[in-house]
Amino acid sequence: MTHAPSHGRAVPAAAYTASAPGRFASSELTRGPWDPAHQHAGPPIALVCREIEAAAASHGLGHMARLTANLLRPVPIGELTVEVKADYVGRNAGHFSAQLSAGGKEIARFTALAQRESPLELPDTLPGHPLPMAPRAPEDSPPAHFPFAGKNVGYADFVETRLAQGAMWQGPCAVWFRMRHPLVAGEAPSLYARVAVAADSGNGISAVLDYERFLFVNSDLTVNLLRKPVGEWICLEARTALGSDGGGLAESALYDARGFIGRATQSLAVRKR
């Protein structure tokens, strides 16, 4: 696990520390760009993903095919509680739901589809295959930096980013993400948690508006994955489209080092600050 340069600041060892089953203390590494008291949505979504993965694994379901987060309120940097429920589990797939709470309030609701993994031999020639690769490999991509990096310890310290195509915060672009610190202290993050930490950044890296003058916050995130990701690096090839009534949509094609793995979408509320 690599670590971020601290610029003279004390940086926590992990995004969260487990205090009891389903309860977690948040660190400053989760801080987002919109309000210094609120988390970037990537880390808490990944935290809930971790809990859903554990519930699904108990039923022999190893692939997280879809994760949807409905973000009801800003996530405070504090104590969080995660509760997971199996809504229906069949032979090959299971539907799960989860709640994220803080300070006695429900902060976010989640649904997920987990599938049983089964080896499948595919024909050598399929339309649209082999699946596309990211524009550039992470080792061939230069470092990239969030415009809010360095102001406070936060998400920009939590992840390492490299530019595969375009320019961050200037429209369509592709960026590799790698976690610099554990999600939960004392354990390696899961492959799906690595995707979740990055996927919520699509609206940021492909922003077409100045974040100091406008808010373009997402109230949801849906990630669909066709297979289990591999490796530490996840690439988002993202673009933002804005409507004339304060709405918007950010879409990201997701890649690992082996190629295309799925898509992420975010519904945006666009306002002047």
Rank of each mutant, 00 (worst) to 15 (best):
Y192C: 12
T222W: 02
R227W: 01
E232C: 10
A196D: 03
A185R: 11
D210V: 05
A196G: 05
I234E: 07
V208S: 14
V197T: 12
L215N: 11
Y211K: 01
W233I: 10
G204D: 01
R180N: 15
G186V: 04
F177S: 06
G186Y: 08
E232H: 08
R213Q: 03
L209C: 03
P189N: 14
A198E: 08
L236R: 10
A199M: 09
R239V: 02
A188W: 05
V223T: 11
I234C: 04
S219Q: 01
V230H: 08
G231S: 13
V230R: 10
A185G: 10
N203G: 03
E212C: 00
E237D: 15
E232I: 09
W176E: 00
Y192P: 03
F214A: 07
K228Y: 02
N218Y: 11
G204N: 05
W176V: 00
T240S: 14
Y211M: 05
L225H: 01
G231N: 07
A198P: 12
V175H: 05
R213G: 03
V230P: 00
L226W: 00
F216G: 02
A193T: 11
D210L: 10
A185C: 11
A198W: 12
L209M: 01
L226Y: 01
V195H: 00
C235H: 09
C235Q: 10
W233T: 15
L225T: 07
T240R: 06
